[in-house]
Design a protein around this nucleic acid. Sequence first.
DNA 1: CTGTACTTTCAAAATTTTCTGAAAATAAAA
DNA 2: TTTTATTTTCAGAAAATTTTGAAAGTACAG
Lengths: 169, 169
Amino acid sequence: MKLDQAKQEFIQSWGILGSQWGINRTMAQIHALLLVAPDALSADDVMEQLQISRGNANMNIRELISWQLVQKILKPGERKEFFVAEKDIWMVAMRIIAQRKKREFDPLLETVTSLQEIEGDGKNQADIKAFTETMKNIERFAKKGDKALNGLLTANENWFTGTLLSLFK
Amino acid sequence: MKLDQAKQEFIQSWGILGSQWGINRTMAQIHALLLVAPDALSADDVMEQLQISRGNANMNIRELISWQLVQKILKPGERKEFFVAEKDIWMVAMRIIAQRKKREFDPLLETVTSLQEIEGDGKNQADIKAFTETMKNIERFAKKGDKALNGLLTANENWFTGTLLSLFK
DNA sequence: CTGTACTTTCAAAATTTTCTGAAAATAAAA
DNA sequence: TTTTATTTTCAGAAAATTTTGAAAGTACAG
């Protein structure tokens, strides 16, 4: 297989993977493109290589920056902005985990916690008990996951590879 | 807050969470509804409570069954089918992890492995090297993740709570 | 068999998400 | 300041996804 063909295939796969995980396909493709680009690319480069509009490119690049997966680079003498992706896959994974935890996991935890205060009217005590138990179980599980994720986020790859992974043999 | 109101809120939150993770909102809502239902529900119950069509209910219930998150129950004497959700949150999480790993993670691993065989034409050796390195890094990381997930999937909640979590203090 | 109760399918409709492109905004250069 | 290069915004268009509902399929009961 030729290099350009392989890059194309990688960009497509990464895009599909992203879209299955609730991430805009184009955003994932731009990320893939920058991951395999030898140098920083401009918005125009991205537009041309992925055949997308300026607005689309701009919006998704900025989203990638807010996820801390891409950085803006200013080249001396150039007016254009250039972009590079975080190339360390461990860092990429940790940034994604951190974002999703903050945006989705933490709010869920708040919700299930708050839903445990139910007014009882005497008649449906058993039902209330059952519902509250379910919420408590989700909360307990989520708190454990929270702890594990926080641990992972403050760990580094060596620790993951060595200490943690050895537990799974 | 009243019980029914709390259930509604939980169903909505679970639905939003699902949709952010690439799971059909209705599928997540049906799952939530069954999670907080005291007894097994029929397709008609689901249709009525979520105000959705028969086709939609049928399709999403069957998808939940294929994810092993919901089970079909046959009540003696009744012709209708009834459905119950797996209520153990640990099991729910493991089933989801197992499905997604199989459907998305494993294929990615295959792709990045296969993309490492690039025809070199002498001129772009450095570029090929860089691309192959990136694929190798993703592969290495994915293999470690694979191992960790397999470990988690064969573990049980106690082990997670005790042994693993203690590492994160 | 025939009728009845229910489940499944799928084409078309509705909805949601994403993308475009031109106009407005910004900022550096002249 | 004015011109020019570049980025940002956002309303409408396009595309993708989800939902509907009626018809077809299945299977049990009589």
